[in-house]
Amino acid sequence: MTFFIVFIVIVVVIGFFFVSIYNSLVGLRNRVKNAWSQIDVQLKRRHDLIPNLIETVKGYMTHERQVMENITKYRSQAMDAGTVGEKAAAEGLLSGALGQLRVQVENYPDLKANQNFLALQEELTSTENKISFARQAYNDQVLFFNNKIQMFPSNIVAGMFSFKEEEFFEIEDKTEKAVPKVSFS
């Protein structure tokens, strides 16, 4: 009888232990998902800003048609991209094109003084920052989650319920990796 009670207690304790680990794993996986959606929100925001930017800049920058065509092209590529890899590549190209625009703006002092353009520039700078900070936060979460999956004893629970390691969001373009930014000055 005593043996039976001890056995039950041990089973219950282990059960609670498993449940709490399982719950924390689910919580962490949700954090990863949430962090990923933050990146998505900001990428979409960048795509939404570009038509406005082109509209404002168009009147001033009459000689830079190529740059603006590139931006439009990469924007639609990025919007159509399906996989994470494709997305990262297209966004990298888009960042590059926006960077070219930034350099060209130097030659148009009227544009630099335009209030609408300044407001747009702030929005774009901020969106670029948000993308990079969201990526940082996402990678932090992924690291934490993956550690949890690999380490004992949570790795047992992770194995039983097939929690998979998440992928880091790395961007290939070196310049993009170092400084994701748009500055028009």
């Binding site: 949430n34 933050q38 702030e122 700078t125 901020s126 920052n129 948000k130 900070f133 969201a134 936060a137």
Partner: peptide, 13 residues
Amino acid sequence: NVVEEMRIAANLP
């Protein structure tokens, strides 16, 4: 914008 950037960086909901 800056506050929102930092909120994102800190992963605050």
